[in-house]
């Protein structure tokens, strides 16, 4: 299972890097969104995918999985939610001001 997850994470990372390197702002943001997913999956996978019960007090199980990575992932998800929301608003404002979402055209000249 860990191997499969690693492969999936690798694919997600490569796709997100590809998106990061593209010219459209919105694709770059999608790249950042995707890389955060990859990172969260990595966080879950790296700490071992034990097959115990979910760490909930309401459930009776013989063994529970490590709840810490899940708490970490939840925190990381909240943070990436905030960052992505901010990025989207910012991209929208940039588009309104510059009338383009092409990063090539947003390079700016050296002397301004």
């Amino acid at each position: 299972m860990e191997v499969l997850m690693s492969v999936v994470i690798g694919i997600i990372f490569s796709v997100s890097i590809y998106l990061f390197l593209s010219k459209s702002i919105i694709r770059v943001i999608l790249g950042s969104l995707l890389i955060s997913h990859g990172v969260h999956l990595l966080l879950i996978t790296m700490s071992g995918l034990q097959r115990g019960g979910p760490p909930l007090l309401g459930l009776e199980a013989e063994a529970y999985t490590d709840p810490l990575p899940q708490a970490l992932v939840l925190t990381a998800i909240v943070i990436s939610f905030g960052v992505t929301a901010f990025l989207l608003v910012m991209a929208y404002r940039t588009f309104k001001e510059h009338k383009t979402d092409n990063l090539e055209e947003l390079r700016g000249s050296a002397d301004e």
Binding site: G82, A85, F86, L88, V89, Y92, K96
Partner: peptide, 13 residues
């Protein structure tokens, strides 16, 4: 509050 602020910031424009 945060979710609505972000969404309305784009929508109101």
């Amino acid at each position: 509050g945060a979710a609505m602020t972000i969404i309305l910031a784009i929508a109101e424009d």
